[in-house]
Design a protein around this nucleic acid. Structure first.
Lengths: 210, 210, 210, 210
DNA sequence: CATGAATGAGTTTTCATTCAT
DNA sequence: AATGAATGAAAACTCATTCAT
């Protein structure tokens, strides 16, 4: 029993390692430019070993995808659990969301490259995984805004639509950063967040008077 | 000479047609899933003919890329030439920018897929083309904001940083739409724009009193 | 137009050549032990050229299969068209049938090896092709026997069952020869044929009194 | 010692089981489509265990081959030992021979598929095994015919050649049945046997007067 | 004895590119 | 100019076999 537990744990460690290495290669050189040989070499195993753990290159990618998506969703849920005021929470979230995307930039980059290429199943998995993450972030933001509106801190905007706005914005930031054509240096994010918050807050309840 | 002129014109028409067809195929099925055979067939020419006009698949893509980027830059410049108030112009631009991205969605999708894949030269060309478009859009927005700030219509934000914010936002909108995971239906864009504009305007000069 | 005719003819020649070479290799070393590289080399073409003419290894085999089956069926039909007495015809056919099988031994050997292996489609094609050939040989023999019975030369056996008997016999001869464990040297065939014919003929109308 | 005996017996049981399972898989899906993993799973043992009992896939096949060939030879010898008249014996043998082939159809099918494929050693083993079986069947039949000729029951044919004829015939029947393209339903075998026997018997000693 | 994780040689197939016509 | 037949490099994947436990 103890033997099995150890074996399973070892297997988990190994597959996780492979998934991470694969994802970083995929992100770095692109899915097609990354061969299974590359991954095997980088992971320090034989080519066949990859196929022992994952039935195909595609499945390996999908496994790596969910591995990271799950982490990101967990991070988002941790934010939601914080017990602070809507304004503080919104400020925190808008700082953390791009940071999370940046942290998992390898995945995001890969996903973008993958969009439209590859098999039906790949498409579906990416779609599902990404929607799940998006839904989580969306509800996180919408809840904050809904509460802020209820407390008369925010203007009476539609929480869902406002949340979508904020997500588009943070995602836009992230993409620019990811693809290296961002003119948003440090300091820029603050300006951006300021503009957005100003647009949400009641005029007679300025954000900076708290 | 007349002969040559006609020939050149014909050549232009043909190459443009090929570029457009190629781009739509690239966008639809992805760069790798699109073969030179596919393009030749779709364009109604022989495989070899493609190589008469373009030295390689890569160069064909780059040519198609610039073909569209130039169109997008021209569209942005046309917007800049409009002689209307900063507020109206900003409103107009924030409507047109996503629309332009959507119109050239084929290209955007391809670019995302390409990011990180392919050769050094490809990377550079994409980088340069995209930066040029971004620079244009950026200066378009920055100029508007600078003028709005000068006219005391907008809060005294840094025009460059605010412009970058707006671009990130419109790009974010566009990506969400492109990748099909947007929860922003019609009506959502207005809310978003409203939030952003509210964040830029002076509190005592509300956007809706125009 | 003449150009096209020539081209088509050349294509036919080329594909036929490839089919024959492939079949001989398949028969010699077996389907699996024969690589597309082997075939390409033997045919003096590049590996890719094979795929220009045939979509896959499997399809190449199937094409070669039908190529030869058609020839065998044509040979059988030519025998049927001969206008000689039932006894002479039967004697001739029982000489020619094993000869034809022997001539196309490459195919037969390959078919036996393939039986039970390979994909669904392969199985079906082999089944259909072989049945078609068998049906032809069967009707050839049944017609002869039917006529012989009508002319009171043969005992009143069931023509279909007797034909099946003869086919089983000639095929058995052929398999033994093909697989190299035949103890039927020259002279043996005559004894065999004699036994069979004696079994068919009326006792009071001996075969050798004609 | 007792311990060893038991162990040996157990080992025999186990290897026999593996050989039988392997052979049925080989026959069902073909040698190449059957992996060592398949066999291990079907036998309920680990992949490595197979290699404890058999040094290679090839040797496993050869072992299974001899396992069955020995059984078939034993069956043939049992027939030879029967003390009945040549005519009855011949009739019995011609019934039993195809029955034996059918019973061991798995092996026959596999052998056909193997013919021409695989290594030198494989070829030799198959050749030797098959020849040994054939020699046994041949001598069985030749002895019967020789005796029948001596007793003036059969026409004075060459016993060896006649035996070869009969074997070719029964093998032909069997192949047709094995490969599923037989038009010989029940009832057909009797006609066939009748024809053959008629061909062997003296005209003035009809087969049906016994 | 038994196991199953690990390996890598070897195969089919795709497709950008060339070049004779 | 235009074509399409020919090419071969490159990559995913399979599976018999080994060996540490």
């Amino acid at each position: 029993m103890a033997k099995i537990a150890v074996t399973d744990a070892e297997k988990d460690v190994k597959t996780s390692r492979i998934k991470q290495i694969a994802l970083s290669l995929f992100a770095e050189r692109g899915y097609h430019q990354t061969t299974m040989s590359d991954i095997a070499t980088a992971a320090g195993v034989g080519r066949g070993t990859l196929y022992w753990y994952f039935p195909s290159k595609e499945k390996l990618f999908i496994a790596a995808l969910w591995h990271e998506i799950d982490q990101m969703i967990a991070g988002s849920k941790a934010l939601a659990a914080q017990d602070i005021s809507p304004l503080d929470k919104l400020s925190l979230v808008m700082e953390e969301l791009p940071r999370s995307l940046a942290k998992h930039g390898n995945l995001i980059r890969s996903l973008c490259q993958m969009w439209g290429e590859e098999s039906e199943e790949m498409q579906q998995q990416i779609q599902i995984a990404w929607e799940r993450l998006n839904r989580q972030d969306h509800s996180l933001l919408a809840d904050i805004i809904r509460e802020g509106v209820a407390q008369n801190i925010f203007r009476p905007v539609d929480p869902d639509k406002a949340a979508a706005t904020l997500i588009a914005f943070t995602d836009g930031l992230c993409y620019h950063w990811l693809f290296g054509f961002s003119q948003l240096e440090s300091g820029g994010v603050e300006v951006a967040r300021d503009i957005i918050l100003q647009g949400l807050l009641y005029r007679d309840k300025p954000a900076d008077d708290k």
